[in-house]
Amino acid sequence: MTNESTNHTTITNAQRLSNCTEDELTAELLRAGMSSLMFAEVVKRYQKQIYYHCRNLLVSHDDADDAVQNAFIKIWQNADQFKGDSLLRTWIYRIATNESINLIRKRRPNIDFDEAQPEMAEMISEDLYLSGDEIALKLQKALCFLPFKQKLVFTLRYFESLTYAEIALLTSTSEGALKASYHHAVKKLEIYLNVLR
């Protein structure tokens, strides 16, 4: 009887977590902490987004895979440091961004994030899991000609649809600077896309 009631409670919790909105999930995390059930729900909910975000930044599938794994491990280990000052999604994106930056620094210790990495464009058409959309591939190649900071802002805003407020929290930058940066990135990418056509 006790087991049955326990099972019933577990099922309810699992279903309730999967049906939670993001705000409710954040509140639940702050209230009950990061349980294995909660972590499984977080992984299911954000894994794809985090992978594509890391893939946009790192281009290489293997690097993106490593960054995602490391990011979720850090989320599991540092869940008690989440204070709820931002959305859970913002916090997760920030950790994933940090892991991507760390991975780039590992690959190229002398990298300058104010400069573009055009050599990464050559890797795109040879890697795994491409959608096959030519314009999308061109956009990815054009992104490699942007400085990393502009690339990050554009990726978060354009592909992940984060608000400027979230990106400002994630990057510790003012919204005005972000808007200007995004605007510059868009204009520059349009130039590149017109040239690459």
Partner: peptide, 11 residues
Amino acid sequence: FDMEDELFEEL
């Protein structure tokens, strides 16, 4: 061609 901004401190 470059565009200056003041993005990103260490996260």
